[in-house]
Amino acid sequence: MTGESYIFLAGASRGVGREIAKYLTEQGKKVKALLRSPDSRSELEAMGIKVVMGDALDAAAMEQAIQGDEPISAVISTIGGLPKDGERADYLGNKNLIDAALKAGVQKFILVSSIGSGESVVAIPPQALETLKPVLLEKEQAEKYLIASGLIYTVIRPGGLKSEPATGNGVLTEDYKVAGTIHRADVAQLVCQCLDADAANHKILSAIDRTQMYGNPEFEVLTLN
Rank of each mutant, 00 (worst) to 15 (best):
V155F: 07
C192E: 02
T131S: 11
I156D: 06
G160C: 12
K203M: 02
E143L: 10
P158N: 11
A142E: 04
I156A: 11
I204T: 14
A197Y: 00
Y153F: 15
A188V: 04
Q141H: 14
A188Y: 04
I147P: 00
V178W: 00
E140F: 13
Y145S: 05
T167F: 09
E130C: 07
V135T: 15
G170N: 07
S163M: 15
V155P: 05
T181H: 12
Q193L: 01
I124T: 08
Q193Y: 00
V171P: 00
G159A: 06
A166F: 14
A199D: 00
G180W: 00
Q141C: 12
G159T: 05
K133Y: 14
T173M: 06
V135N: 11
C192V: 12
Y176G: 02
N201S: 04
H183S: 04
K133R: 15
L205D: 08
A188M: 07
G160Q: 13
R157D: 02
E143H: 10
I124C: 05
A185I: 08
G180S: 00
Q127F: 15
I152V: 14
E143A: 10
V155H: 04
G150Q: 05
L146N: 08
L205W: 10
G160A: 13
A142H: 06
L129K: 12
D186T: 02
L195I: 14
L146W: 08
C194H: 01
L151T: 10
A142Q: 07
L161S: 09
D198S: 12
H202F: 11
G159H: 05
K139S: 08
T173S: 14
G150E: 04
R157Y: 06
